[in-house]
């Protein structure tokens, strides 16, 4: 299982703040996970449509699309940050 968190408009579009997911077979990287999200239904397809725009953190560190994902990870998807 992995914990997946969603923030800001990614949370609103997916309708989900947090979920525990069994990693489907063949999902080894953030990029694989984004592709899988696009096939999950309307809200997810919409949230992940602009593939380059959604950012990802694994275990609370910013990562690139080629970063590996594995059981036990905390994975977060969110828009570019706008604090300060």
């Amino acid at each position: 299982m992995v914990k997946i968190l969603y923030f800001a408009w990614v949370r609103e579009r997916t309708g989900t703040a947090s979920e525990d997911v069994a990693l489907p077979d063949g999902i080894a990287s953030v990029k694989d996970l984004v592709e899988w999200q696009r096939g999950r239904g309307d809200g997810f397809a919409e949230a992940f449509a602009e593939g380059d725009l959604v950012r990802c953190a694994v275990n609370q560190s910013h990562v690139a699309l080629d970063h590996p994902v594995k059981d036990g990870d905390e994975i977060a998807f969110f828009p570019p940050v706008t604090g300060g």
């Binding site: 923030f7 910013h62 828009p79 706008t82 604090g83 300060g84």
Partner: peptide, 8 residues
């Protein structure tokens, strides 16, 4: 802070 800290 403006480009790395996760605030929205």
């Amino acid at each position: 802070l403006k480009t790395r800290a996760p605030f929205w």
